[in-house]
Amino acid sequence: MAAQAKILIVDDERDLVDAYVRLLERSGYRCVGAFDANQAIQMIDAESPDLVITDLSLPDNSGVEIVRRVRAKLPVTPIIVMSGHNTPGLHEAAQAAGAYISLLKPVSIAELRRVIGEALAR
């Protein structure tokens, strides 16, 4: 059942989004990608994803704001946040806003699959 989950992947690195979409779809997930916070917020409203993966550092908004938007619209949807920067307080703020887990990039596809499976099983 979890393999049919719809995942929204948000990152301003288009190559990363494309790679995660491709690799996760091979694992049986349905994936959609967004490249900035505004697009992600529209997709949250339109797609109602079962899980959201978002970068914390986006050019037009904070990933923490995406976490807040998902929590408001989809209160039980798990959210995985990622960042290439270990900025003090940022990961904690995301988890305080309702993120399931915060990961430091780069994240291997094996680790991402494991975390997705755990998040969807909750």
Rank of each mutant, 00 (worst) to 15 (best):
residue 90 L to R: 07
residue 32 V to S: 08
residue 22 R to V: 13
residue 79 I to S: 01
residue 100 Y to R: 01
residue 61 N to Y: 06
residue 8 L to V: 10
residue 80 I to M: 03
residue 115 V to P: 11
residue 10 V to T: 05
residue 96 A to D: 15
residue 57 S to E: 12
residue 84 G to P: 07
residue 109 I to L: 15
residue 117 G to Q: 06
residue 59 P to D: 11
residue 5 A to S: 13
residue 90 L to V: 05
residue 51 L to D: 10
residue 44 I to E: 02
residue 16 L to K: 10
residue 66 I to V: 07
residue 43 M to R: 08
residue 71 R to K: 15
residue 25 E to K: 05
residue 111 E to W: 05
residue 51 L to W: 06
residue 30 R to C: 02
residue 118 E to D: 12
residue 11 D to A: 08
residue 34 A to F: 02
residue 106 P to H: 13
residue 67 V to D: 07
residue 27 S to T: 11
residue 31 C to W: 09
residue 31 C to F: 11
residue 84 G to L: 01
residue 9 I to W: 02
residue 41 I to E: 13
residue 44 I to A: 02
residue 4 Q to A: 12
residue 15 D to C: 06
residue 113 R to P: 00
residue 18 D to H: 08
residue 19 A to P: 04
residue 50 D to M: 11
residue 58 L to T: 05
residue 22 R to E: 13
residue 64 V to G: 03
residue 111 E to I: 07
residue 51 L to Q: 03
residue 98 G to K: 04
residue 29 Y to A: 03
residue 117 G to I: 09
residue 82 M to S: 07
residue 113 R to T: 12
residue 114 R to Y: 11
residue 34 A to R: 09
residue 10 V to F: 03
residue 109 I to N: 06
residue 105 K to T: 09
residue 65 E to D: 15
residue 92 E to W: 03
residue 10 V to D: 05
residue 57 S to A: 15
residue 46 A to H: 07
residue 58 L to M: 13
residue 93 A to D: 11
residue 27 S to W: 03
residue 55 D to W: 05
residue 114 R to P: 07
residue 23 L to Y: 09
residue 28 G to W: 02
residue 27 S to Y: 04
residue 71 R to F: 10
residue 6 K to E: 04
residue 118 E to V: 14
residue 116 I to E: 03
residue 84 G to Q: 10
residue 59 P to H: 09
residue 92 E to R: 10
residue 26 R to Q: 03
residue 74 L to A: 03
residue 104 L to F: 00
residue 104 L to G: 07
residue 66 I to Y: 03
residue 40 A to M: 05
residue 38 N to S: 13
residue 48 S to I: 09
residue 114 R to E: 14
residue 20 Y to Q: 11
residue 48 S to D: 08
residue 62 S to P: 00
residue 76 V to L: 05
residue 118 E to H: 00
residue 28 G to E: 02
residue 49 P to V: 10
residue 107 V to W: 01
residue 11 D to T: 13
residue 98 G to A: 00
residue 77 T to G: 02
residue 99 A to C: 10
residue 15 D to L: 14
residue 57 S to I: 14
residue 88 P to N: 10
residue 27 S to E: 12
residue 59 P to F: 12
residue 20 Y to D: 14
residue 63 G to F: 13
residue 60 D to H: 08
residue 51 L to I: 04
residue 45 D to Q: 15
residue 106 P to V: 01
residue 62 S to L: 12
residue 68 R to A: 03
residue 82 M to W: 02
